[in-house]
Amino acid sequence: MSNRQLNSQLAYDKLFRYIFIISAVMVSFVIFSIIIFVSKQGLQTFQDISFWEFHTGTIWNPPVQFGAVPFIVGSVSVTLLAIALGGPLGLAGAIFMAKVAPPWVREIMRPATDLFVGIPSVVYGWVGLTVFLPIISKYTSGPGFGLFLAGVILAIMILPTVISISEDALRAVPKSLEAGSYALGATRWQTIYRVLIPASLPGLVTALILGMARAIGETMAVAMVIGNSPQLAGSLFGPTATLTTEIILSMGQTPFGSPWNNALFYMAFTLLMISLSMILLIKFVVNRRLVNEQ
């Protein structure tokens, strides 16, 4: 190889190293820009609206009253409902796939759960409207729109997240622990709930938290089935609204820079902070505990 060739190879090497570093830095740059721009827009809300009223008021009647509690409670309620319904089912599905299902069943289920992710959120919403809504409406003799329907649809939507992460966590438990338990005469179920679940607990908790993060940020499907009434849900089946649904429905009707519009950005900022704190919780609490135990 001539010197010139070598030099040009080294120059290329350096060039691409910088390209890759810049790409990586771009990812950080993007998330910081999102935080800065959304917070800057959102925090302008409190030039016109009382911080206290926004966070404690229960009446949302812009441009007069800006009590955002119904949306906050709505978001938290659908999320809890989704995880209460979808969490146990997802964990059971993950245990089934990881430890019980024969290989051919597993070969069917793995791509099947991938397809759940592939179904678009608007389609989930549409199925909720056309299939689940009439059923709920019939049994509650109400309109059917509301908290419960949103929770059911979200529970289905978070299944793939919960299943795939917790299945990975269960599979990561060393086979030797399982063998050790069987060699003491434990049944499969005893091995699962006394050894595998405790050993993979940080991963399982991570799966549930990420499922909740997905649920609280979901917009389209929820907006299609929750009823979009800016008030606290009177009952489990009552119509209400969430932070995401209020944003998607009101953003187009409010002029940029108006207090109402800013308030929508502040809601987005709140959602952003919730999802970021979930990641930090996973990284620095859930997984830190794992490290300490070993």
Binding site: I34, G217, M251, L264, L276, M278
Partner: peptide, 30 residues
């Protein structure tokens, strides 16, 4: 730097899509 990039990736992955939409709205529309 590596830790920051990794953390950023995970954070970006959990940002609700509606928030990404609003960010796009601020940058491109406004």
């Amino acid at each position: 730097l590596t830790n920051l990039v990794r953390l950023s990736t995970e954070c970006l992955a959990t940002v609700p899509s509606i928030v990404l939409g609003l960010f796009g709205l601020i940058i491109f529309v406004n």
